[in-house]
C-alpha cells in the first residue's frame, strides 16, 4: 500500500493563525485543504512536508457571497461549487469535469487553483523516478520532455483556472502582513516548478467573479471521468442586444505550465458577431497558442491539431448553436 511519510499535523481555526504557522515553519510546512492533490504527491514522495497545516477547520474559507458578482471561499469543495446555482457556466462546466465525484467531494476550489503542475516524467512513484535518474522538477537536473530546456515544462492541469481567467475572476491571497487581490491569471507563472506567484506564507482565501458573462468551458481528455485536461478552452463573452460582442476573454488550460489569457484572440472578438468566419478565424488564433508537449496523455501532434476544433465548439456554443450532441460525445455526459 502506498503510504504517507510521517508529518506533523496542525489545524488552525483562522486564516491568520494558519498564515502564522506557515511563516514560522518556513518551507517545511505545506497547506492541505481537500488533500486530493497533495496526498498522492506525498505518497509518491514529491513533497514531504514536515508540517501539514490543515485549512479544513477554518470556517471563513467556506463562505459564499452573491452581489454584483459572486465570491467563493477557497475552502468550498468542487461539489459545493457545482451545486451552487449562482456558479457561472464556465466554472460549473470546469468544476463538474474535474476528476471524479469522490474527488470533487473532497477537493476544494482553492486546491484546484493551486494544483501542482503535472508531467508523465514527474507524476510517478519515487522508484520510477529513480529509474530515470529523476527530472528537473524534483530531485534531478534534466527535463526529459525537452532535454535542452532550462525550465521545467510540467503542465498546468487545473480545469477551474482557465474558466476563472475567462470570467475575469480575482483571488485574495492572505499572509501575515496582510492581504492582496490579484487577477487569477496573475496567480500563475509559466514555470513547471515555481508555478504560482503565491508567496510561501500566503493563503488563497477567496475567489470573486464579476457578473455579466456568458461563458463556456470545453475539456479534452480521454475518458469521461478521472482524467486531467490535456486541453481546456474557456471563453467568456458579453454581448450587446444585437449579439455584437462587447467584451471577450479567452483562456487556455493544459497548454503550458500556466493557464493563460489569450489577449489577441480576445481583442479580435470584440465588436464582432459570431459568424462562421469569425469563429474559424478566432479558432485558428486560439489554436496557434496551444503548444502541447509530449508529457501528457494522447498524441502530441493530434492535441495540437484539434485545438481549433475545441475552440470552435466553445464559440459555437456561445453563439447559441445546439452543441449538446458534441458535448455528449466529448465529455461523455451532459455538462
Amino acid at each position: 500500500m502506498m503510504r504517507l511519510p510521517w508529518f506533523d499535523y496542525r489545524a488552525p481555526r483562522t486564516v491568520a493563525e494558519a498564515a502564522k504557522i506557515l511563516a514560522g515553519e518556513g518551507p517545511g510546512a505545506m497547506l492541505i485543504a481537500g488533500g486530493t492533490d497533495l496526498l498522492p504527491n506525498m505518497k509518491r514522495r514529491h513533497q514531504t512536508p514536515k508540517v501539514l497545516v490543515s485549512l479544513r477547520g477554518i470556517p471563513s474559507l467556506k463562505s459564499f457571497s452573491n452581489g454584483s458578482g459572486v465570491a467563493f471561499g477557497s475552502g468550498l469543495t468542487l461539489t459545493e461549487v457545482i451545486r451552487n446555482e449562482k456558479t457561472p457556466t464556465a466554472l460549473y462546466q470546469a468544476a463538474a469535469q474535474v476528476a471524479t465525484v469522490h474527488l470533487r467531494n473532497s477537493g476544494t476550489l482553492g486546491g484546484n487553483l493551486c494544483l501542482d503542475t503535472r508531467c508523465t516524467y514527474y507524476n510517478q512513484n519515487h522508484e520510477w523516478r529513480k529509474a530515470i535518474d529523476f527530472c528537473l522538477k524534483k530531485d534531478g537536473d534534466i527535463c526529459w520532455v525537452a532535454t535542452a530546456s532550462k525550465r521545467c515544462v510540467a503542465v498546468s492541469s487545473t480545469d477551474t483556472a482557465p474558466a476563472l481567467i475567462a470570467l475575469n475572476a480575482k483571488v485574495i491571497l492572505e499572509g501575515v502582513p496582510g492581504q492582496r487581490e490579484i487577477p487569477v491569471e496573475n496567480l500563475y507563472r509559466n514555470d513547471g516548478i515555481d508555478y504560482l506567484s503565491r508567496k510561501p506564507d500566503e493563503i488563497l482565501t477567496q475567489i470573486s467573479i464579476p457578473g455579466g458573462w456568458e461563458s463556456t468551458y470545453w475539456k479534452l481528455r480521454r475518458r469521461g471521468a478521472f482524467d486531467f485536461p490535456i486541453l481546456g478552452v474557456a471563453i467568456a463573452l458579453q454581448f450587446s442586444s444585437e449579439k455584437i460582442i462587447q467584451e471577450a476573454r479567452v483562456a487556455l488550460g493544459a497548454a503550458a505550465s500556466r493557464p493563460f489569457l489569450l489577449e489577441k484572440a480576445s481583442e479580435f472578438l470584440k465588436g464582432k458577431k459570431l459568424s462562421d468566419d469569425v469563429i474559424a478565424e478566432t479558432s485558428t488564433l486560439i489554436a496557434s497558442r496551444a503548444k502541447p508537449l509530449d508529457n501528457t496523455d494522447m498524441d502530441l501532434y493530434w492535441r495540437k491539431e484539434v485545438a481549433d476544433d475545441f475552440a470552435g465548439y466553445a464559440l459555437r456554443e456561445l453563439r447559441g448553436d445546439d452543441m449538446r450532441a458534441t458535448r455528449l460525445r466529448i465529455a461523455r455526459f451532459a455538462v
Binding site: 508523465t120 520510477w128 530515470i132 475518458r223 471521468a225 482524467d227
Partner: peptide, 27 residues
C-alpha cells in the same frame, strides 16, 4: 526509452490506474 546518449532508462510509460486508461462507466 530516454535519449540513449544521456540515459540507459527503459521504463513503463504509465504504470498507474490514472494514466493506463481503462474505461469508466461513462465510456
Amino acid at each position: 526509452r530516454l535519449p540513449p546518449k544521456m540515459s540507459h532508462a527503459l521504463v513503463h510509460k504509465i504504470p498507474s490506474l490514472l494514466e493506463y486508461k481503462s474505461p469508466t462507466s461513462l465510456d
